[in-house]
Amino acid sequence: MKMAPILRAFAGHHPAIPTILVHTGQHYDKDMNDRLFVDLRLPHPDINLGVGSGSHAVQTADVMRGFEPVLDTYKPSCVLVVGDVNSTLACTLVGVKRGVPVVHVEAGLRSYDRGMPEEVNRVLTDQIADRLYTTERSALDNLLREGIAEERVRFVGNVMIDSLLSNREFAHPPEKTISEAGANTTLLDDPCGYAVVTLHRPSNVDQEETLRPLLAVLREVSEKLPLVFALHPRTRANIERFALNDLVASERIVLLPPQGYLEMLGLMSGAKLVLTDSGGLQEETTALGIPCLTIRENTERPITVEHGTNTMVGSDRAAILNGVDEILAGGGKCGRIPEFWDGQAAERIAADLAEWLIARHLQTRK
Results as ranks from 00 to 15, higher is better:
Leu7Lys: 07
Arg8Asn: 07
Ala11Ile: 01
His13Gly: 09
Pro18Trp: 04
Leu21Ser: 04
Val22Lys: 12
His23Arg: 04
Thr24His: 00
Thr24Glu: 03
Gln26Leu: 13
Tyr28Ala: 15
Met32Ser: 15
Met32Leu: 15
Val38His: 15
Leu42Tyr: 06
Pro43His: 08
His44Arg: 14
Asp46Gly: 12
Ser53Lys: 05
Thr60Tyr: 08
Val63Tyr: 07
Arg65Phe: 07
Gly66Lys: 03
Pro69Thr: 02
Val70Asp: 12
Leu71Ser: 10
Leu71Asp: 08
Asp72Gln: 12
Lys75Asp: 06
Pro76Trp: 09
Pro76Phe: 07
Leu80Ala: 10
Asp84Asn: 14
Val85Met: 13
Asn86Lys: 12
Leu93Arg: 02
Val94Trp: 02
Gly95Phe: 01
Lys97Gln: 15
Gly99Glu: 10
Val100Pro: 13
Pro101Ile: 03
Val105Ala: 11
Gly108Arg: 12
Asp113His: 02
Met116Gln: 08
Met116Lys: 07
Met116Ile: 03
Pro117Asp: 09
Asp126Ile: 03
Ala129Thr: 11
Leu132Val: 05
Leu132Trp: 03
Tyr133His: 03
Thr135Ser: 15
Glu136Asp: 15
Arg137Tyr: 00
Asn142Gln: 01
Leu144Lys: 13
Ile148Asp: 10
Ile148Leu: 14
Glu150His: 07
Glu151Met: 01
Arg152Trp: 00
Val156Gly: 05
Ile161Met: 04
Ile161Cys: 07
Asp162Pro: 04
Leu165Arg: 11
Leu165Pro: 01
Leu165Gln: 11
Ser166Met: 06
Ser166Trp: 06
Ser179Pro: 00
Glu180Val: 01
Gly182Pro: 00
Ala183Glu: 10
Leu188Tyr: 05
Leu188Arg: 14
Asp190Ile: 01
Pro191Tyr: 06
Cys192Met: 12
Tyr194Cys: 06
Ala195Met: 14
Ala195Ser: 15
His200Glu: 11
His200Ser: 11
Ser203Trp: 00
Leu211Asp: 10
Pro213Gly: 03
Leu215Thr: 11
Val221Arg: 13
Glu223Pro: 01
Leu225Pro: 05
Val228Cys: 05
Val228Pro: 01
His232Lys: 07
Thr235Gln: 08
Ala237Leu: 06
Phe242Ile: 07
Leu244Phe: 05
Asn245Leu: 07
Val248Met: 00
Ala249Gln: 13
Ser250Asn: 12
Leu255Val: 06
Pro257His: 12
Gly260Val: 02
Gly260Cys: 01
Tyr261Arg: 10
Met264Gly: 10
Ser269Asp: 08
Gly270Thr: 06
Leu275Asn: 03
Gly280Phe: 13
Glu283Cys: 03
Glu284Asn: 05
Ala287Pro: 05
Leu288Asn: 11
Pro291Tyr: 10
Leu293Asn: 09
Glu297Asn: 04
Thr299Gln: 07
Glu300Trp: 06
Thr309Glu: 12
Met312Gly: 00
Val313Gln: 13
Ser315Gly: 14
Ala319Asp: 05
Ile320Asp: 11
Gly323Asp: 10
Glu326Met: 01
Ala329Trp: 06
Gly331Leu: 11
Gly332Trp: 06
Cys334Arg: 15
Ile337Glu: 13
Pro338Phe: 02
Glu339Gly: 00
Gly343Val: 00
Gln344Gly: 01
Ala345Phe: 01
Glu347Ser: 15
Ala350Trp: 08
Ala351Asp: 15
Ala354Trp: 07
Ala354Gln: 14
Ala359Thr: 02
Arg360Ser: 03
Arg365Ala: 03
